[in-house]
Amino acid sequence: MVFRIMTGALLMAAFAVHAAPNPPYACSYWDKQTDSVKTLDECAVLKEGKLVFLPALFAKTHDVDGMSWVGLHGYTRGAGEQDADYYVRSAHEYLPVIHFENGPDWFVEGLVRSTQNGKVGYWDDSFRNHIAARYDYASQFDGGKALVCIGCKPQREGEHISLSGGEWYYIDKSGQRISEIKSGPF
């Protein structure tokens, strides 16, 4: 009987801990008062497995074209993922984008790169998927085309990472293959 009571108490305690709200995540953001990057200790929380950005962020952040940049690196690192930045429109409307050159990937020719399940694709500024996330590497668009790879693998060389192998080609803005590459450029 004592064993059952102790087991029940432990299960209830474990459930209470698991059900407790997650602590807020800190973020970097572009501050509208100082026009510089600042840190906000309580920026976002997880609710029902989804990120929710807190009102304090929107009071402080600089809004460009109806969205703000947010770097939630502690959250992504804690989840065992690579750094990701987010473009955020509201508490529940956001798009994770590739962390590129110390900040968020930027929109080029109307599209930005984002990842889903470890693959790269392209989204527009309304956060609609424009080209499905199916590439292991994808460059920004330039002159209406982007270099992509399926099956390439990262190779660490000291502090640098290069890509090797895979099938390389260019796509147009509709995602159609437009030219082949004999071997990867990296």
Score class of each variant (00 low, 15 high):
residue 2 V to G: 12
residue 2 V to S: 09
residue 4 R to C: 08
residue 4 R to K: 13
residue 4 R to Y: 11
residue 4 R to G: 02
residue 6 M to T: 07
residue 7 T to A: 14
residue 9 A to Q: 04
residue 10 L to I: 13
residue 10 L to S: 04
residue 13 A to D: 00
residue 15 F to V: 09
residue 16 A to R: 02
residue 17 V to H: 10
residue 21 P to T: 14
residue 21 P to I: 10
residue 22 N to P: 00
residue 22 N to M: 08
residue 23 P to V: 10
residue 24 P to G: 02
residue 24 P to N: 05
residue 25 Y to R: 13
residue 25 Y to T: 11
residue 26 A to S: 14
residue 28 S to Q: 15
residue 29 Y to Q: 05
residue 29 Y to F: 11
residue 31 D to Q: 10
residue 32 K to M: 06
residue 33 Q to T: 10
residue 34 T to L: 08
residue 35 D to L: 14
residue 36 S to L: 10
residue 36 S to E: 13
residue 39 T to M: 07
residue 40 L to I: 05
residue 42 E to R: 13
residue 43 C to Q: 06
residue 43 C to T: 02
residue 44 A to D: 12
residue 46 L to T: 13
residue 46 L to Y: 07
residue 48 E to I: 00
residue 50 K to G: 04
residue 52 V to L: 01
residue 52 V to Q: 12
residue 53 F to G: 12
residue 53 F to N: 07
residue 54 L to Y: 03
residue 55 P to M: 04
residue 57 L to G: 08
residue 58 F to M: 05
residue 59 A to C: 04
residue 62 H to A: 14
residue 62 H to K: 15
residue 65 D to P: 04
residue 67 M to R: 13
residue 67 M to V: 05
residue 71 G to L: 03
residue 74 G to P: 03
residue 74 G to S: 09
residue 74 G to C: 03
residue 76 T to V: 04
residue 77 R to D: 08
residue 78 G to M: 02
residue 78 G to F: 06
residue 80 G to C: 01
residue 80 G to L: 00
residue 81 E to Q: 13
residue 82 Q to H: 12
residue 82 Q to I: 07
residue 85 D to F: 14
residue 88 V to M: 09
residue 89 R to K: 13
residue 90 S to R: 06
residue 91 A to E: 11
residue 92 H to A: 06
residue 94 Y to V: 01
residue 95 L to W: 01
residue 96 P to S: 13
residue 101 E to G: 00
residue 103 G to R: 04
residue 105 D to K: 06
residue 108 V to M: 11
residue 110 G to H: 10
residue 112 V to A: 04
residue 113 R to K: 15
residue 114 S to R: 12
residue 119 K to P: 11
residue 121 G to E: 08
residue 122 Y to R: 00
residue 123 W to H: 11
residue 125 D to V: 09
residue 125 D to L: 10
residue 126 S to W: 04
residue 126 S to H: 15
residue 127 F to H: 12
residue 127 F to N: 12
residue 128 R to E: 13
residue 129 N to P: 11
residue 129 N to E: 15
residue 129 N to T: 14
residue 133 A to E: 11
residue 133 A to H: 10
residue 133 A to R: 09
residue 138 A to D: 10
residue 142 D to N: 15
residue 144 G to P: 03
residue 147 L to H: 06
residue 148 V to D: 10
residue 150 I to L: 05
residue 150 I to Y: 06
residue 151 G to R: 03
residue 154 P to V: 05
residue 157 E to K: 15
residue 157 E to I: 14
residue 158 G to L: 04
residue 158 G to K: 12
residue 160 H to E: 14
residue 162 S to F: 06
residue 168 W to G: 01
residue 173 K to I: 09
residue 173 K to A: 01
residue 176 Q to Y: 10
residue 180 E to P: 00
residue 183 S to K: 13
